[in-house]
Design a protein around this nucleic acid. Structure first.
Lengths: 195, 195, 195, 195
DNA sequence: CAATAAACGAGACGGTACGTCGAGTCTTGCT
DNA sequence: AGCAAGACTCGACGTACCGTCTCGTTTATTG
């Protein structure tokens, strides 16, 4: 029995074009924000025909979604795991707050939110982890395992509350003060911390 | 008290036009979402010249912000005050979740978020109260007064966590189950409830 | 009774834009031919938005038709009237043949024909007079009046035969020799000349 | 006679493809006209790759030219030869006018003219015989031989005048009345008929 | 009560970008 | 080598809205 994979005919998708498009998208997204992101500029910067974009992505938001997935939009804010959940979450939140304090960072996050309003994938990803690789809920589950959080803690809700609060601050252009990360984590972890 | 306002000459702003514009904006916003909202359609539906809109509002988002302020976009989700904070918050959250369960409601909320990404006022308003009249933080303060929440509770953070979680669910198109409101409120109120 | 002409409201059509568009059309038509004539180039050269063209003309061919009407496309080949029909027609045909002998002239005429295949107005105008101001049939009628052509001559047919033959030569890229104009006029005038 | 042709290596041109392409071209030409004729549609309808078309024909117009040559575009309007030139020409012209009276026929002829503006071969063929098999000039020469037309008649010019007039009518969308064929032939034959 | 001036409706204007179509070329694997 | 499939770049299409700008009309205030 030979390998009979019935390869389809015709030229194959150009990886170079794919990468150039995603790179251009990420670059322009960061430079000008989601709303000012134009398919024509992407095509121009990528040195690609517009049609090549539309052949593979149905919309601007899908393009951005794939960039997000490939980690081209956000620096990796990997949630650390030092063994101390609370400290880890504070550190993580703080790193995000540091980004938000910069006008460019805040508007990048707001752009991501704008993209999420148009694209379910982006929305889902934001929901899970603020768009980064790691999932907050996952880290919390580990903490339960390690006995740091009470059994039966509402991990999903805690994660949503934390991430949601962060996004809400970006949306509301709320200035961020020192200690805010700690206060926020403190609040959402509230009753869940094992004593 | 003398007539003191030295009115300038010329016709005065037409209240009819103002109302027609806001109404048209609200209607089209609900019907087609923020992104598909066109100034030209608003003008057409309001029976008004585009210039009349631009004379009084600098942008689409400002227009939407004023609609929000006038309560034309959201049904009033007044946060109740029965004396029991937790029950009140659950009821309120539940009402929002009921809206989110309808596709039209979810997309309305997402449209609001989209508008907020462009307009600080809308963002602020969403931050304070999900766009409704009442402020969550205010209600929490009353609860502290009444001894239902511990002194020193992080009211701001609780409110942000609750509202943020709700918006995040809308963004992520997360299906909402019965009991979710209670679980969420339970989580964010966590350690703040007086025992 | 006052003049009550109910002027429509709103800004008035810009004559400057109209002229710039027609000029640009004529120029590009002559430079590149009908098929290579692009609405975008016209708009660019005229310093006008594409929409301004589409507001007033439904198609490229309509635009060219108006150019033709305004005499911007063809030098005026006014059919002379010296009293001698035959000589006049020969002179006129010869002038056209002179144009056709130049490659640029021939391709201009072919472009006109191409435009005529898309636009009835242009076709009609070509039929009547090869696109120029004067009508051949009209001149023939004068000649009948003057007794130079037999009464009852088929003027319409003579004109069609003459103009048609000229266009057909352009279409067939038939090289034109000296004396061709005379031979052709001789033929089409055939039996019509009074003796 | 030995086999002498040293055939080059590799597959030989596919006659099936050639025929399918010409058939598809003819069909689509008649259905949608020259301007709306798309190479992609031809390839699709013929079940052929675009490259196969470009391998053998340099352009759309060349493709159409070959269709014309193969008699796939026009019904054969063979110029009859009953011995009476005038009657023959009238019959022939009348057949063409019958075609022109149908909107589809008129637009087919106009499409042919459009093709001729882009392609010298088509133009030449139209010049000679309106695209059909037989040449008008040839038939006239026979008539001279038979003593029906004067010696020294300008056969070329007569043919041009007749065919040109017909095409001009198609271009000008001139409605055709009964008797027009006779009147036209009468005119162009004018002084050439032997008495 | 004229003169003045702002607001208004209508709508034309220069722009930017859209998403689509088709052209002609190139690549891949099969025949 | 020819072929079907199909991806590629390029250029233009015709449309949608943007925000600005005349127009001529209406409405209020002021001299």
């Amino acid at each position: 029995m030979t390998h009979m994979s019935q390869r389809r005919r015709g030229a194959v998708r150009s990886e170079a074009a794919r990468v150039a498009i995603l790179r251009a998208t990420a670059h322009l997204f960061q430079a000008s924000g989601y709303d000012n992101l134009a398919m024509e500029s992407i095509a121009a910067e990528a040195g690609v025909a517009k049609q090549t974009i539309y052949r593979w992505w149905p919309s601007k938001s899908a393009l951005v979604a794939e960039c997000l997935l490939e980690g081209l939009l956000m620096p990796d804010l990997g949630l650390p795991d030092t063994g101390d959940v609370k400290a880890d979450l504070i550190a993580w939140t703080d790193r995000i707050f540091t980004i938000l304090r910069e006008p460019s960072g805040e508007s990048l996050v707001r752009s991501l939110i704008a993209a999420a309003t148009e694209n379910a994938d982006i929305g889902r990803r934001l929901h899970d982890s603020l768009g980064t690789e790691s999932s907050v809920t996952g880290r919390l589950a580990d903490a339960v395992e390690a006995g740091q959080l009470r059994d039966g803690s509402r991990l999903q809700e805690i994660a949503e509350a934390l991430v949601g609060a962060v996004l809400l601050r970006a949306l509301g252009r709320i200035p961020i003060a020192a200690g805010d990360a700690e206060r926020l984590v403190d609040t959402v972890l509230g009753g869940a911390l094992a004593r």
